[in-house]
């Protein structure tokens, strides 16, 4: 049996023919769509390295079957920057050294983008820590990650204020 689904991936419409319903969103991105920015750290929802946004919400792409996502809008790390202009979260990760090896980083960043849009953590470091706890970092760049997310949250809020003013 073959399954045909359509996805919007980083703004681009894609039709995907799936010969196998077992393919997860993560493996679809990495092995079939050549979007390898999203990483696999556990394949079981335990590390957050595979975090992407589906319809604007952060999820673990390793625990989502691609076939179930027909019609979904998917954002990955590759689509976050605006050309050469980094997203504020990306810029903050560099500035606060929120990573070392960088392997967990795409997941951390997408998770942070999701967390910020959820709007429950604000710029309270403790809420950010809790909200980012689904993203393990073995290099243990947590200090910088928290600083980066807090900082990016503030900057993004300022930008929104300025725009609405």
């Amino acid at each position: 049996m073959s399954y045909s689904i359509s996805l919007t991936v980083n703004g681009a419409q894609r039709r995907v023919q799936l010969d196998d319903p077992r393919v997860t969103l993560l493996d679809l991105l990495r092995e079939r769509l050549d979007l390898t920015g999203t990483k696999k750290g556990c394949d079981r929802g335990q590390c957050g390295a595979c975090t992407v946004l589906v319809d604007g919400r952060r999820i673990n792409s390793c625990l989502a079957l691609a076939v179930t996502l027909d019609g979904a809008d998917i954002s990955t790390i590759e689509g976050l920057a605006d050309g050469d202009t980094l997203h504020p979260v990306q810029a903050a990760f560099i500035e606060h050294d929120g990573f070392q090896c960088g392997y967990c980083t795409p997941g951390q960043i997408m998770s942070a983008v999701g967390l910020i849009s959820e709007g429950h953590a604000g710029d309270d470091p403790e809420r950010v820590r809790e909200g980012m706890s689904g993203n393990l970092c073995r290099c243990a760049a947590y200090h910088g990650i928290t600083e980066a997310v807090v900082d990016a949250t503030r900057r993004m809020a300022e930008t929104t204020e300025r725009k609405s003013a």
């Binding site: 929802g45 957050g48 952060r58 999820i59 673990n60 989502a64 998770s111 999701g114 967390l115 993203n135």
Partner: peptide, 8 residues
């Protein structure tokens, strides 16, 4: 669980 898991 985690924010991501609870979203799913």
């Amino acid at each position: 669980a985690s924010g991501q898991l609870r979203n799913a």
